[in-house]
Design a protein around this nucleic acid. Sequence first.
DNA 1: GTGGGGGTTCCCATCATGGGAAGGTCAAGG
DNA 2: CCTTGACCTTCCCATGATGGGAACCCCCAC
Lengths: 143, 143
Amino acid sequence: MNIGEAAGRAGVSAKMVRHYESIGLLHPRRLENGYRVYAEPEIAVLRFIRHARELGFPMEDVRRLLALWRDRRRASAEVKRLALDHVAALEEKAAALQAMARSLRHLAAHCHGDGRPDCPILDELETGRMPGEAPAPPDCCGT
Amino acid sequence: MNIGEAAGRAGVSAKMVRHYESIGLLHPRRLENGYRVYAEPEIAVLRFIRHARELGFPMEDVRRLLALWRDRRRASAEVKRLALDHVAALEEKAAALQAMARSLRHLAAHCHGDGRPDCPILDELETGRMPGEAPAPPDCCGT
DNA sequence: GTGGGGGTTCCCATCATGGGAAGGTCAAGG
DNA sequence: CCTTGACCTTCCCATGATGGGAACCCCCAC
């Protein structure tokens, strides 16, 4: 099977298949003309990578997960630790994004949103203060 | 004021100050020796940029917000639209991250996490199926 | 005049992915 | 047999925002 078909069956782009190979995640056989050849085990690896990426694992974690997957003597504790560390990272990022969304939604709620120029959103960006917030004392934290 | 002091007062790195200049967000005067010179208006711009970045706006939005901020005849509706579009983007990203976290947490909850090798997390990465989920019909969607 | 702490430009790296050029290969069909 | 088109190969470049670092210049205090 050529790279195009393999990529299609695994649900990733041929470009990324080459990339995964270049970082050492799989090692397809080559024909004499240089073409890469894939069979079921390689497809399985590519699908594994895709699923891990869909769960947001960075490539470095994917590499470790692949190694654990291949190691029949792995301890599931290791996999679980990797997963839970990643869950913590995901939740931290999600919380940060939601905090931004909440602040900005609050600001937007105070903005007329009409033809007039005054706008608490721009005010906040200028001053770093939310609408109605007390001015910082003059020697505050450098903002 | 030199770039180091300006960066410190605005709460950004000197490196980023130069970068913001390179993409046209500010245009500090230069001394004969090539040094950049900053005064209060530039500091205000840098703080504005920092606050917008802290709310997660991409630089392209920051550029637009800066233009609106400088335009005393702006319509606050434009600012509000930018802000609410960004809120939607933030919430979409946050939701995606949380969905990943939820799936992964669910998988991890089913993993013994001990010295044994069997692990529903690896199983899901291999098959794309959550624990207990029915096998897909043989001609399913290519996964 | 020298040392140290700035400043300047330029290049490279991140992370995962895509775009595209230049060229080789293969299969089908006229 | 030759063309055409689809596919493959490698290599370079770009993203977005940021940091690291080299090589070099400048200024002030001692």
